[in-house]
Design a protein around this nucleic acid. Sequence first.
DNA 1: TATTGTTATACTCTATAACTATA
DNA 2: TATAGTTATAGAGTATAACAATA
Lengths: 144, 144
Amino acid sequence: MELEHSVGSDLAGQLRLSVVRLNRRLRSQRTDETVTLTQISALATLLRCGAMTPSELAASERVRPPSMTRVIASLEEEGLVSRRDHPTDGRQSIIELSPAGAELLAAEASAKERWLDKRLAELTDSERVTLARATEIIDRMAGT
Amino acid sequence: MELEHSVGSDLAGQLRLSVVRLNRRLRSQRTDETVTLTQISALATLLRCGAMTPSELAASERVRPPSMTRVIASLEEEGLVSRRDHPTDGRQSIIELSPAGAELLAAEASAKERWLDKRLAELTDSERVTLARATEIIDRMAGT
DNA sequence: TATTGTTATACTCTATAACTATA
DNA sequence: TATAGTTATAGAGTATAACAATA
């Protein structure tokens, strides 16, 4: 009983390792070269929530402002976001998804030749439903 | 219909972002200081599969040998694993979970004060079951 | 004086390439 | 010559601390 509990039902530990290892796989399998997962995540937030300031984007992505400064700089270089002045506050600026950024996100969503898509295609409908529900729960837990 | 499909059913994209963001949270919320998630993952593999060579451990963890060299070196420094000579091949060595490493894993599993445990405690039983099933599916997909 | 954002710097995690030791 | 492992080096991703500009 005690043993079973400590070995078999450590959901936090299991989930933690699963996430760490799948994250590793996702990053290593990525051969795209143009954008990183971190950049895609920021672009997806801009698509979902609309234009916002760097600080707001950092808060949405749960990273610190200096980290987001670097992500935004790389996205600007590649033309995937654009920056405009804040209408009333000279310190702030507004980061907006560019048409190229929106196109890239759409292409990502329809590119079905990637590693994860292939693995998902091998699952049953029921398993995919479970994963879809899990992503909702995870997003809620992570505050995204 | 088309819009709904492209926005609502990109399971790969949703899962990818959920994993990237939860991984970020897990690493940033970690205040332990003694071991990293990467180290815990390696220790957990040694517990589950038993002693093995550095190459085998790298393959199990799906990282390259030089990456595992560094993980093992840090675990050795902290006394969480021990190394012994391979009985027949002078090139190889055997990495084994030490009693301190096993203790640390047990302590991790029973430390219920951490961020993820608190988030999980706020969920319903049904949601936790969904996550438990999802971890199994993910582990199968990631080949672990 | 407080806030927004950036720059400087450092650490973790991971990779590839080159090297050493042994088979 | 091939294999196991390490060392050297680099890049992504993130952080804290210090600074600049504006409020």
